[in-house]
Simulated scan of single mutants.
Amino acid sequence: MKSRIFLLLCLAICSLQQVKAQTVKYQTDQHIVNQQERMVHKQWDRKKFTPTKGFLGLNYQYWLTWGLHPNYPKTDLRPLSVSGPQTQRLLLVAAMKNTEEAYKKHVDTLRNTALGEMAGYAGAVSLTDPLWQLYYRKEFQPLIEQIDPLQGSTPEVQNYLTRIGVLEWYREETQALAQRLNSATTTNMDRGSRIMSYHSMLEEYRKLLATWEAKKQRAVLYLKVSKVNAQVKEPSEPIVAQPGRTDRQIVDDILRKSKL
């Protein structure tokens, strides 16, 4: 039992000596501390350059330390000083960031401009143009949908226009105009040229519609005149002069029968 206690005491004494041997004393060198403070963040203070000159400049440690580097205390070598390398690096990074943002804005502007020009130039998206949607599509709707041009006309007028070839002429003109309109909407061109093409074709289409309406009206008038002439040449009831009637009454009867 006593031997065990003695052994434990020996082990405890050895462990305490080992801990004491591993203890490191922290040494502070004020010269190194000053240099660290100068280089990192604090002011480049010439008064804190140690060792100092001492009384009448007789401190030999000062001359041994700074005698070979007389300009070192005068030159601010802090990385974060006004002209320090780290400050310049940060300024350069900020300048490069501003330049990058300016380039990015410029590129975005070019991209938006290119997309806008492409939208106005490409024929694939020409039908989405606001001017086409709001105006020209409505004006060209009969031409695009190929509505029957004889709609609303009497069978006599339809047969007459078909027989003399006016209907075929009108259909050829509208088909040619529709092909030109389709080319203007699908071909790649700038928006101004496309709008001018729409305007020019719209004028031609309106003239063609006016001509077609005039031809239909003339056909109606011609058929009426032809019918009247046929009735006058071959009256259904002969006009018989009745005794006691004046010339004015006879003329009125003739005009009344011609209107039938």
Rank of each mutant, 00 (worst) to 15 (best):
E37V: 07
Q17P: 01
Q30H: 06
L16A: 08
Q27C: 08
I32W: 10
Q27L: 15
V33C: 04
P51Y: 03
T50G: 09
V40F: 09
Q18T: 05
I32R: 14
L16W: 03
N34C: 04
R46Q: 12
F49C: 02
Q22N: 12
V40K: 08
L56H: 07
Q43L: 06
F49E: 01
L16V: 03
V24P: 08
A21K: 01
S15Q: 07
K42A: 04
K53I: 00
T28V: 15
T23E: 12
P51H: 02
V19A: 11
T50K: 11
K25S: 12
V40S: 14
T28L: 15
Q36I: 14
K20S: 14
S15F: 05
R46H: 00
Q18N: 02
V19T: 07
S15W: 02
G54R: 01
K48E: 07
K25V: 15
H31I: 15
Q35R: 13
H31R: 14
V24R: 10
R38Q: 07
H41N: 10
T50P: 00
T28E: 13
H41D: 09
Q36D: 07
R46D: 01
R38S: 02
T23K: 12
V19E: 09
D45K: 07
Q30M: 10
W44K: 04
D45P: 03
V33N: 10
T50A: 11
V24C: 08
Q18G: 03
T28H: 14
F49M: 01
S15H: 01
V24Q: 13
T28D: 12
D45A: 07
